[in-house]
Structure formats: C-alpha cells, structure tokens
Amino acid sequence: MRVEQFSWDIGVIALAATPIGNLADATPRLVSAFEQADLIAAEDTRRTGLLRERLGVTRRAPLVSCHEHNETAKAEQIVSCAAEGQRVLLVTDAGMPTVSDPGYVIVQAAIKRGIPLTVLPGPSAPLLALALSGMPTDRFCFEGFLPRKQAALMRRLEVLSSEERTMVFLESPRRLASSLSALAQVFGVDRPAAVCRELTKVHEEVWRGTLSELKDKAKDVRGEIVLVVAGASPQTPLNEEEAVKLVLSRVEKGQRLKDAAKAVAAQSGVSAKALYNRVLAERK
C-alpha cells in the first residue's frame, strides 16, 4: 500500500483526529495537514502549538482558539476564512473533533454556506474502549457524558435501561464510582460493563466485570475514563403479572421500587403507577 501525502484543495475545512495520549499515533496525514494549513482552529492553542512542535512541523500557520465557550462566536470567522480560499484545519486537544469536543457548530456553519469538508481519521477514545471492552460491537450507541445532577442522571438512565445496544459513556474519574452505583441501581447489579482508563498511555488498563463489581473498585481512580456497558437483553412483551415479578426481582437486587417500576414500565408497557401499587400491596 502506497503512503500518499494529504492532498488538500483551497477553501476546504479539514477535521483531523489528534493523539489521545501516545504521540506515535499521529498519522503522516496529520503532519502533512499541519504543514499545509493556512489557519488552524484549535480547542487549546497552547496544546496544539506544543503538539505541532513535537511532530516536527516547520510551518507555523496562525492558531485561533475554538472551544466550547466561544465556538458559536468564532464559527463565522473560521468558515469565512475557508470561503476566502484558505485551508482551515480543525483540531481538538485529543481525538476527533465534534465527538464530545468542539467542532459541530463549525461543521453546521460550513454546510450551511456550502464550504467543502473533509476528515483525517485517527484516534477516538469511544471506539478504542468499545474494541477493548469485550462487549458486543455489532450495534452500539455513544452517550457522551452522563448528567452531573442526580435527578437528571436517574432520568437519563431510566430511558436507557431497556436499550439493547452496547452503550459507551465518557466519565470523570471523580464521578465514576457514583455513576456506576446509579447504573447498578437502574440497570441491575449484574449488568456487564468495562472501565477503560488512560487509553494509549503508559498506565492504560481495562477493568471488566459487573456494575456491582466495578463500582466497588472505582474509588480513588485517576486519569481519562471511558465506560462501556452491555445493552439490555432482548425482551418479549410482558403481561402485568410478569412485569410485577420483574419489578420485585430488581428491588431484591437493590434497586429502588420507584426506579424499578419506571424501568419495567418502559419495557412492558404496563403503567409504572400500577406496578408500584401492585408491588406495595404484595409486600404488605
């Protein structure tokens, strides 16, 4: 297979993946794009400048800051530069732009104005974690970061409790233990999962087990975290009696009755209120 230099027409915005931990994962096409760019839109200009130096890039195209707090304001400027014929390179601190990182607003603005886009593939933490997790990869969904507030977190998990695809989440090491506890409460303690930490870095590791096992291990963890959770088992329609038994089973495993009733209601179509009241009556 022949290695070709990145060929880049004027007036095109290129989205490029950058290493997520190991500098050796930078592709020759990324280096070539840095050399050819007329303008570089970067999540953190200092980090991108340092990356450029470490890769031995000799050309120093101007860097413009583009992060979650200013992307909307900067999008018009960046897209206009491409419209004027400049080669614009869009990068984030690590991984692929737009995937839980800045870039989506710029892509939308470019599409609206008819500016050509291209992409330079490379590292992406969600896909690496999925591959390492041991979970099914034929169907999966990326859910990004879970909500920080408890009420919003529980609502999100209740919606996802019957999701049959493998789910991939990003998580802060400080919130990992509490998020795993919430997942175990809503999904059930026996749901398989994997915690992928510091991918491509020196201390890379993957913990595999049930949600219950992982939450007990997740105290004082450090580094970048990707959490992969197995999807729910395919369910056949349940009548009310079967739904009540399933609620009782979830409660016996430690899930709150209210949460169990909502999760089973979403799966069975039986009213959550009816399930709640039936279980209360049976426990008296």
Rank of each mutant, 00 (worst) to 15 (best):
F6S: 10
F6A: 15
S7M: 06
S7K: 09
S7F: 10
S7A: 14
S7I: 09
D9Y: 04
G11S: 04
G11Y: 02
I13F: 00
A14N: 06
L15C: 03
L15H: 03
L15W: 01
A16D: 02
A16C: 09
A17I: 06
A17P: 10
T18K: 00
T18A: 07
T18V: 03
P19N: 04
P19W: 04
G21E: 02
G21T: 06
N22M: 15
N22R: 09
A24S: 15
A24L: 09
A26V: 13
T27H: 10
P28E: 04
P28R: 05
R29L: 11
R29C: 13
L30Q: 08
L30I: 13
L30N: 09
L30K: 06
L30H: 12
V31G: 01
S32K: 03
A33Y: 05
A33M: 11
A33W: 01
A33F: 09
Q36L: 11
A37F: 00
A37D: 01
A37E: 03
A37L: 09
D38P: 06
L39T: 11
I40E: 01
I40S: 07
I40W: 03
A41E: 10
A42C: 14
A42T: 08
A42P: 13
D44Y: 06
R46A: 03
R47Y: 05
R47Q: 15
R47I: 02
L50Y: 05
L50R: 13
L50V: 12
L51H: 05
L51K: 04
L55T: 08
L55Q: 09
G56E: 05
V57L: 12
V57N: 02
V57G: 15
T58W: 12
T58D: 14
R59W: 03
R60Y: 03
R60P: 02
A61Y: 01
A61M: 10
P62T: 03
V64F: 06
V64K: 10
C66K: 04
C66I: 08
C66V: 08
C66M: 10
C66G: 01
H67C: 08
H67P: 07
H69P: 09
H69C: 05
H69Q: 15
E71Y: 00
E71K: 02
T72Q: 15
A73F: 06
A73C: 05
A75E: 11
Q77F: 08
Q77S: 08
Q77N: 14
I78W: 00
I78G: 01
I78A: 07
V79A: 11
C81M: 08
A82Y: 02
A82V: 01
A82L: 15
A83T: 12
A83W: 04
A83F: 00
E84H: 05
E84R: 13
Q86E: 15
